[in-house]
Amino acid sequence: MKNQTLTNLSRVICVGAVALTFSACKTTQSKNTLKPPALSYKVAAVCTQAVNFDKPIQRTTEEKKQKREMRNRMIELKQDMAKKDVPCINGASGEPLPYATFEIPTGIEKRVVNAGAKFDSAVIFAARITTHDKDGGLVREFDESDYRRLGSIFGVQFSPRETERFVLIKADPSLIGKQEETVETGTRAKQVYNYGLSGSYSSGTNTQGIQQSFIRTYSYNGEAIMQTVFPKQKKADK
């Protein structure tokens, strides 16, 4: 009886882990919540005159140790700009501008950074992006033509220069209220499982096409995001 229980337990672990495997595969974008655009900024904190680079959003200590494992993968850091603890600075005309600072992961050559705002169903954080050195000094600004859609984010893509340590994403008041109207097609894949009485199962993917219209408004809310992609390790580097 004990053996039978253990065998069943083994099956449960197998099936559970396989199910977890498939459910962990991100085949589609997660469902966007419908947030209304915030066209004004309610200051939750006292804004400063200068950006504080002391507490950037960064990889966890554990992630930093996994230098080799970072190869051929992406690290994504993000900030919900509607949160009350998001810092702000006073803009050129004294207007309060929420911002987020991100530390660019170092250590691997030819990494590429995608920085900007995550696409929501109706909202895009009106992001203006700059890069900064270890002291917070400005290294790079981007032209308007450098901003583009990169998968699920709207922003810029660059190979970090040696001096670039931080990405600053702050609200751009000139963008607030502007809209982007698109028709988009894509697929949504669902994993389907059929379980038999004996504990066996079969699985498959059901793929459906989707067409959707979007009217997205640049606003003070939404998500600021920085993705760093790392190249595959070359044979010569191993």
Binding site: V18, T21, R73, K110, V112
Partner: peptide, 23 residues
Amino acid sequence: LSAASLAALLMTACATPPYVPTV
């Protein structure tokens, strides 16, 4: 063994490599 091998599968099966452009 089941748990270990399937945990390994969990780690590798979905590792779609990101696209790394040359900017």
